[in-house]
Amino acid sequence: MTQSPPSLLSLFTGFFTVGMFGFGGVGPWARRLVVEQKKWMTAAEFTDLLGLCQFLPGGNVMNLTIALGSRFQGIPGAVAAFLGLMTMPVVVVIGLGAIYDQYADFPPVRRAVVALAAAAAAFVLANAIKVAMPLRGKPLGIAVAVITFVAIALLRLPLAIAMPVLAALSIALLWRFQR
């Protein structure tokens, strides 16, 4: 720890700005706040904590607010950082939804959303390609990814059933053959 622990208010306001400006992903903004601007943690501490947050289920930065907030100020700190991150985005997204409800039948709005949806799908597609890149040259990993894809996208299996089976299979395979 590089400074005295941040107060509840500064946890809230700090992550409030992350939520407000974090278009298209809040990760880089969170790093800027915690490491560069406020110096709440060193880069190494931040990377370590983010590693935990990526390891656990749930949104990575959402988990980060809980982990970081609770480390400095216990449960109130976790709640303050979490609410800071989420308040503005939830308000904006519900506002957008309400406006869309109102004007969904107005042709320019309908056309804009159709085009927006195509671009948003591209965002996920690009993300999918980036996440898959580290699997290059790892046939076992590629095989597990393909099986997962088929199970979920084509067979449409429930994730709650597919996930434990796939996870056990993947961890066992990689543990056995790729050490």
Partner: peptide
């Protein structure tokens, strides 16, 4: 922990690709 993390990565990759393809097939009108 390393084994679990390494094992989850290809599953995450497959899941995100599944989401991307499902979205793209509906948005490509």
């Amino acid at each position: 922990r390393r084994a679990v993390q390494a094992g989850l990565l290809p599953i995450t990759a497959g899941l995100i690709m599944a989401g991307a393809v499902l979205l793209t097939t509906t948005t490509t009108t």
